[in-house]
Design a binder for these strands. Structure first.
Length: 908
RNA sequence: GGGUCGUUAGCUCAGCGGUAGAGCAUUCGCCUUACACGCGAAGGGUCGUAGGUUCAAAUCCUACACGACCCACCA
């Protein structure tokens, strides 16, 4: 017999081991002659997902738990439906993020990666990665994920390296990848260039410094306004709008740059906004994108005063060289103030671009980098979207996604770090000179040879000495190939044939552009197909105050702790039920309690059913004589059928939260609160055939509900389903192999639902009366009913057993004359009066008060309906069915009102 | 500067054209032999504001306010 309270851990461990031992989630491709034959259609069509590979930076967080729970729901659901399902596990090497983690570890040992050297550093990374993968994959298994463990992939293993090299080669051959000199986003902390989307903008407090730039002859010159005074040391011009009347005479004049003493020119450029600041803009071509462009237009010199490591260069001048950016800013401001050039300082909050990995301000920097041309790649992705070959769920993401694709700039893919796929390009030392070894990023127009290994000889000069490009590729470059690299593309593998394109991609909106869009583009460019036709984009898990979880805020929730404390199923369920399409999830620990209670409810309802199955035998609804079913059976089966269809409909529409809610409501509010209570009447009775009928329905409905719930709560449902197996007759070893719950034929039953509504309304009214009049819970009461329509009277007479059991009655009888017994309280429901004689229990004043409150509510109710019924336009224009419904509602409310008032009149 | 989404019970959120819902919290009563991680009952909302469409609006439209997020090279 099961325990009173569900203990999750042993159950989870048991089934995790069983699933693994059975290799349950492995899926083999079905060999076909043609990649797109019928095997990909109909029932045999595989359902395929690739996991968004977590970075090997540590352990999983709640966001991963949500993402993978959602995927697991679809994987298990599709398996339950009988489709071959392949869900690929894996991890991402995570480029900068992972390298940063290692660098922190090194720092603790007072080491740097440079001290170790590239080779040793990478060796350490490999060790770390191995550990981390074990942790992450273990956590995914703990979460219950139905992943095909034999197909685990890593974005930097040999197969994925092949894919990366092939992709680079194809892009190279199509001239879609190139090396060029650009202003790039440089992170001085990470020591690398970043792509545009890896820069995040943050509103930060700052100042607008107004600095006087005197004319070269010493007379008064313009005042410029800047948020970055330290860059003035690299200024090579001041720009004004040529149409600005204030500065008409100034263009072409020479100014003396304060502190530096250099002479710089005033140029006229349309870019300058006369309205902003003073209308005069200091121009630092080396450290600002716009200034760079102005510099290009006016052929200005470029003076780099900040080095790639964020310190001032020699060009900044003797007093500044070696200072950090921040220190240099303070000193420049101080020096300007002392020298009398600082005219004004204003508080000025403005947005600052920061590194998405380390939050340090980005330094725009001119350098030679590798880029992917995006225009050609974006076009097919847009077409796929517009033609419906790719859809986003919820649809609200479609527009932002489309807009993003339409204004893409080239993607900087080279990173000056060590952890990643090395760029497969080599340079001839003879052609480029020794400088290629040290000043790689400053060498213009270097011509490389595309090759994974060192080339034999230079095609230009025949030289045999080469250096490989020192950079690695953006981690997102390999991620973009993931949906096909996991199947060992470019190899023409059976897996690729059978599983690709995949079916669905589930991920959070924070990587829609970084990842989803790039997979679409790369998939189309390299395989000619959309890598997945549908993508479910969910929200992110926040803390209970709606704040993003972060280590620095200390509001991070550890999924393992939650799973230990409340059970994995409860944890999963609490995430899913809040994962409404397009919404973020405010995560509070208290919300898991509800799901934990639900798991316990499941546990106990199964316990109850098992307790009432005295002999081991198989129950089957199909074998049951349908005429033996009574009202509550017909009702619960109809409700069950509706719930199953609702759940499937919601899952098919990628709304698992609504599906979970439907299951929760059905199981708890309908099955447990009403059906089980009513089934007890027969179970505890003496009529054996009736007992058997109730048992059959209990087994059918509970068993099926457990199966439908399995994708959401895999462990407990597996356990309970197994316990029920001797009675449900299910042969399959595991729920996912048992097929979806399906009723034989149609079990909808409008009549039963209407009758049960009546019964429930009467029971509720009687319970309410008892509670309000403080009738002792142990006291069985007598009830006399009066009035009502013939069919309702007949129904209540027939199902007096229901009323007696649920409202705790001693007896209920109908009075033809409608006489109210003395000292009785009155409940009104179903257009009838229910008199409850309560001599000695009832207090007349109390009952009058109660009736007045009821009348008050009934009045408000009736008033609303009356407005509708008195509205001629409504009667004339609303649909007939609507009018009839309103009339019925009005009549019922009217009847209720009359009965209550009549009762009150009699009492007073 | 554009764009998206939100504003519903004390809290967190469903509902998205026909008398306002859930969970949690609150109050009252119950250890009723499945479950106190439970059962029954109750209180609590002019559905952000102002207009409009409609017989009918929390639900559709238009403004506005507030909030969040995304995008954008404004010193």
């Amino acid at each position: 017999m099961l325990d009173k309270v569900y203990t999750s851990r042993p159950v989870e461990d048991k089934w995790s081991a069983s699933w693994r031992a059975a290799d349950l989630f492995h899926c083999d491709p079905v060999p076909t002659t043609d990649a797109h034959s019928e095997s990909r259609q109909g029932a045999g069509k595989p359902f395929v997902m690739v996991i968004p590979p977590p970075n090997v930076t540590g352990a999983l967080h709640v966001g991963h738990a949500l993402d993978n729970t959602l995927q697991d729901i679809f994987a298990r659901y599709q398996r339950l439906l009988g489709r071959p399902v392949c869900w690929i596990p894996g991890t991402d090497h995570g480029g900068i993020a992972t390298q940063s983690v290692m660098e922190k570890q090194l720092k603790a040992e007072k080491l740097t990666r440079q001290m170790l050297g590239r080779e040793k550093f990478l060796a350490r990374m490999q060790v770390w990665t191995k550990q981390c993968k074990t942790t992450i994959l273990g956590q995914l298994e703990r979460l219950g994920c139905a992943l095909d463990w034999r197909r685990e992939a890593f974005t930097m293993d040999a197969d994925r390296a092949d894919a990366v090299h092939e992709a680079f080669k194809v892009l190279w051959e199509k001239d879609l990848v190139y090396r060029g000199e650009r202003m790039v986003n440089w992170c001085v902390r990470c020591g690398t260039a970043l792509s545009d989307i890896e820069v995040e903008f943050e509103e930060r407090k700052g100042h607008l410094w107004h600095i006087h730039y005197p004319a070269a002859d010493g007379s008064r010159g313009p005042v410029v306004a800047t948020t970055r005074p330290e860059t003035m040391l690299g200024d090579t011009a001041v720009a004004v709008n040529p149409k600005d009347p204030r500065y008409q005479g100034l263009i072409g004049k020479s100014l003396r740059l304060p502190l530096a003493g250099r002479e710089i020119l005033v140029v006229g450029d349309e870019y300058v906004d006369s309205e902003f600041g003073t209308g005069a803009l200091k121009v630092t071509p080396a450290h600002d994108l716009n200034d760079f462009e102005i510099g290009q237009r006016h052929k200005l010199a470029s003076v780099a005063v900040i080095s790639p490591d964020g310190h001032m260069t020699a060009a900044a001048g003797a007093g500044y060289e070696g200072l950090s950016r921040e220190a240099a800013r303070d000193k420049v401001v101080e020096d300007l103030k002392v020298a009398g050039f600082l005219e004004k300082v204003a508080d000025y909050p403005h947005s600052v671009g920061v590194c998405y990995r380390c939050n340090q301000p980005i330094e725009p920097m001119l350098s030679w980098q590798w880029f992917v041309r995006m225009e050609e790649l974006a076009k097919p992705a847009s077409v796929a979207l517009d033609s419906g070959r790719f859809r986003l769920y919820p649809d609200s993401w479609t527009k932002p996604y489309r807009e993003w694709l339409s204004k893409l700039k080239d993607w900087c893919i080279s990173r000056q770090i060590w952890w990643g796929h090395r760029i497969p390009v080599w340079y001839c030392v003879k052609c480029h000179g020794e400088r290629i070894r040290t000043d790689f990023h400053q060498i213009a127009g270097a011509r490389g040879v595309l090759s994974v290994e060192a080339p034999e000889s230079c095609p230009v000069c025949g030289g045999i000495e080469f250096v490989q490009d020192p950079d690695v590729l953006d981690t997102w470059f390999s991620s973009a190939l993931w949906p096909f690299s996991v199947f060992r593309w470019p190899g023409r593998t059976p897996e690729l044939k059978f599983f690709y394109p995949t079916s669905l991609l589930v991920t959070g909106y924070e990587i829609l552009y970084l990842w989803v869009a790039r997979m679409q583009m790369m998939g189309l460019a390299l395989t000619g197909e959309v890598p997945f036709p549908e993508s479910l984009i969910h929200g992110i898990v926040r803390d209970k105050n709606g704040k993003k979880m972060s280590k620095s805020l200390g509001n991070v929730v550890d999924p393992l702790v939650m799973m230990d404390k409340y059970g994995t199923d409860a944890f999963r369920f609490s995430l899913v039920i809040q994962a409404h399409p397009g919404k973020d999830i405010p995560f509070a620990e208290s919300s898991i309690t509800g799901s934990r209670n639900f798991a316990n409810k499941l546990w106990n309802s199964t316990r109850f059913v098992l307790m009432n199955l005295p002999q081991t035998k198989t129950y089957s609804l199909a074998a049951l004589d349908r005429r033996r079913l009574e009202l509550c059976d017909r009702w619960i089966l109809a409700e069950y059928q509706a719930a199953l269809s609702q759940v499937r409909q919601k899952l098919d529409a990628y709304d698992p939260a609504a599906a979970a809610d439907a299951l929760y409501g059905f199981l708890w509010d309908k099955f447990c609160d009403w059906y089980v209570e009513l089934a007890k009447i027969r179970l505890q009775g003496k009529d054996e055939p009736a007992q058997e009928t109730a048992r059959a329905v209990l087994v059918e409905v509970l068993g099926g509900t457990l199966r439908m719930l399995h994708p959401f709560m895999p462990f407990i449902t597996e356990e309970l389903h197994a316990a029920l197996k001797p009675f449900s007759g299910v042969k399959a070893a595991f729920v996912v192999e048992a097929g979806p719950p399906e009723l034989p034929g149609d079990w909808s039953d409008v009549e039963a639902c209407r009758e049960m509504d009546t019964v429930m309304a009467v029971v509720t009214a009687l319970r309410s009366l008892r509670a309000q009049l403080n009738v002792p819970p142990g006291l069985k009461i007598d009830v006399v009913s009066a009035g009502g329509s013939a069919d309702v009277r007949e129904l209540l007479a027939k199902r007096a057993d229901y009323l007696t059991a649920l409202a705790h009655l001693r007896d209920i009888r109908h009075s033809r004359e409608g006489t109210r017994p003395a000292h009785s309280a009155t409940a009104v429901a179903a257009s009838m009066s229910f008199y409850v004689p309560l001599e000695g229990v009832i207090d007349l004043a109390q009952e009058c008060g109660r009736l007045r409150r009821e009348i008050g509510k009934a009045e408000a109710d009736l008033a609303k309906l009356a407005i509708k019924m008195e509205n001629k336009d409504f009667l004339a224009r609303a649909p007939q069915a609507e009018v009839e419904l309103a009339r019925r509602q009005y009549d019922a409310a009217r009847a209720r009102m009359d009965l209550l008032q009549e009762t009150l009149r009699m009492l007073s």
